[in-house]
């Protein structure tokens, strides 16, 4: 159960470096613009350049690229699935064909090329998101999303969930290890039943904690209103320069993404 603690990418966000110091609104606008450019791209140039830039930026803030590579394993699995699906269903020119238990698998050239292009998009897009999450805290993200007019209810719930995920995870981990130590996961049947008890305990503890939290909130004067206090300083000259830079750069990204390779 400990795997999630190590996988969450926000453990690097508390560091003080040039990327964490950038205003979250600037980072959000850059992220969204680049994701749109990545989505619209008809070649892999733009996507792969995003991947390259992300790696370089990570190196500048002393984060080893393996952190990003580890997080990319799952997206790569999906990319491979898309490669196979597209290879099987798109195009005319057969490239490789073989038979598996009477089912003829014929991969087509056009589909494979399309699949590889999607692979580039996945790598580019995921690397941008990882770079953002490695340099932005949850409270900064909340402030940025509030600036983008995300409803307060969503932000409140997100903060609540994020705040208590780790606490509940710790409690569940303790129960899980205790179950394992007492052979609660020795066989499949036992494991499923143990997971049921674990899930049940999780729900009970969540409700109990919710009761305690609401009492504490009530004691502090909560009346069902907004609980978030997101402080956003007024935009300064540097931020305006960054926004203008992206406004000028964005058409170029769209143009570069439309250059045909194959």
């Amino acid at each position: 159960m400990g795997f999630l603690h190590h996988t969450f990418t926000d453990r690097y966000t508390q560091r003080n470096n040039w990327l964490t110091r950038i205003d979250v609104r600037v980072k959000l606008i850059y992220l969204l613009s680049m994701l749109i450019a990545n989505l619209w791209a008809k070649n892999a140039y733009v996507s792969l350049s995003f991947l390259f830039i992300s790696f370089v930026f990570l190196l500048t803030i002393n984060i080893f690229p393996l952190v990003m590579i580890k997080n990319m394993v799952l997206p790569l699995l999906f990319a491979f699935m898309m490669l196979v699906v597209k290879g099987l269903h798109e195009g005319e020119n057969e490239w490789i064909s073989f038979s598996v238990a009477g089912y003829i698998v014929a991969l087509k050239k056009e589909g494979i090329l399309g699949g590889l292009q999607i692979g580039g998009k996945i790598l580019g897009g995921v690397s941008l998101v990882i770079l953002f999450s490695l340099t932005t805290t949850m409270s900064q993200l909340n402030a940025g999303l509030k600036w983008l007019r995300m409803p307060n209810t969503v932000l409140e719930l997100m903060s609540f969930m994020y705040r208590y995920i780790f606490q509940l995870l710790n409690e569940v981990s303790a129960i899980w290890y205790a179950q394992r130590a007492r052979l609660g996961h020795a066989s499949w049947r036992k494991a499923i039943k143990s997971f049921g008890v674990l899930g049940g305990m999780l729900i009970i503890r969540a409700v109990e904690r919710a009761e305690r939290t609401s009492e504490a909130m009530y004691a502090r004067g909560y009346k069902g209103g907004c609980i978030l206090t997101c402080h956003l300083k007024p935009l300064e000259r540097n931020e305006y320069i960054c926004f203008s830079g992206m406004a000028l750069f964005f058409p170029f990204l769209l143009y570069a993404g439309n250059i045909k390779i194959w």
Binding site: M1, F3, L4, E156, L157, S159, F160, M161, Y162, R163, Y164, I165, L168, L169, V172, W188, A191, F195, L198, G199, L202, I203, R205, A206, V207, R209, A210, E211, T213, S214, M217, Y218, Y222, K223, G224, I227
Partner: peptide, 23 residues
């Protein structure tokens, strides 16, 4: 008034539940 903490907490619980490593 206790609805928001309840939803948030159950949301966190479901998130944690969705992380259970099933072989």
């Amino acid at each position: 008034h206790s609805y928001l903490p309840l939803v948030g907490m159950l949301g966190a619980a479901v998130f944690v539940f969705s992380c259970f490593p099933i072989p």
